[in-house]
Design a protein around this nucleic acid. Sequence first.
DNA 1: CCTCGATGCTACATTTAACGTAGCGGCAGA
DNA 2: TCTGCCGCTACGTTAAATGTAGCATCGAGG
Lengths: 115, 115
Amino acid sequence: MAKMAAKHAVRGSRTGRPIMALLDLLGRRWTLRIVWELRGGALTSRALRAACDEVSPTVLQARLTELREAGFVELGEGGGYGLTPLGRELFETFLPLHRFAERWQKAQVATPRRP
Amino acid sequence: MAKMAAKHAVRGSRTGRPIMALLDLLGRRWTLRIVWELRGGALTSRALRAACDEVSPTVLQARLTELREAGFVELGEGGGYGLTPLGRELFETFLPLHRFAERWQKAQVATPRRP
DNA sequence: CCTCGATGCTACATTTAACGTAGCGGCAGA
DNA sequence: TCTGCCGCTACGTTAAATGTAGCATCGAGG
């Protein structure tokens, strides 16, 4: 199998199942977090970096590029990154995760660790 | 507040916001994919590995351990990994992503790439 | 008993991704 | 002009993922 495709094709995209491509894209470090932090509106790259616990700008730019190519994020006219309408849809798609996360934490403390 | 569990605490767990911990956990390679592949029922470690495009067993075991500690996955009596009730809830939480992914792919081909 | 095959899981060397720090060119305001 | 922030990049270091091989264990068949 040749390496094929451009820089880095989304893993799983060759399967033809878009869910695989999406799961791979979102399964990279900071990707989900970035979308989450942009939920309240556009942020400058530096503000976004601060919101993401001071990610290294290398990864931040890489993720932003990927997210822009995926059509989820855009760089506004006057600067600042924001979600596209599609990106906002994506956010709302996994928004229920928020409430789930809280129930999960309760289950965490309620469930004993490995004995 | 200090939960501070085992080896590597989930990044973001120190923020006290469970969504951060969850986003970090799910934002690791193959984690989302693993949950996805277990949606149809339990799989043996090797079958799961095959389903995940032959991930290296190192990462697979690491993710399975994390997912088990998180209470999303369990190792059945007679062998084979399966989702716990909580894990199934998690899956159903980001199940809408599936339909979104297909709309996304259409938007992908409709949107011009880099000229 | 003894191999055979499959299970869950690990070792380890290599490759890749992420990190951390510094800095670039550009542009607006003081 | 001199700050100060903008988006973005270079580059050396550290951490994670990959790929291949193998271990111990168990159950079914011979």
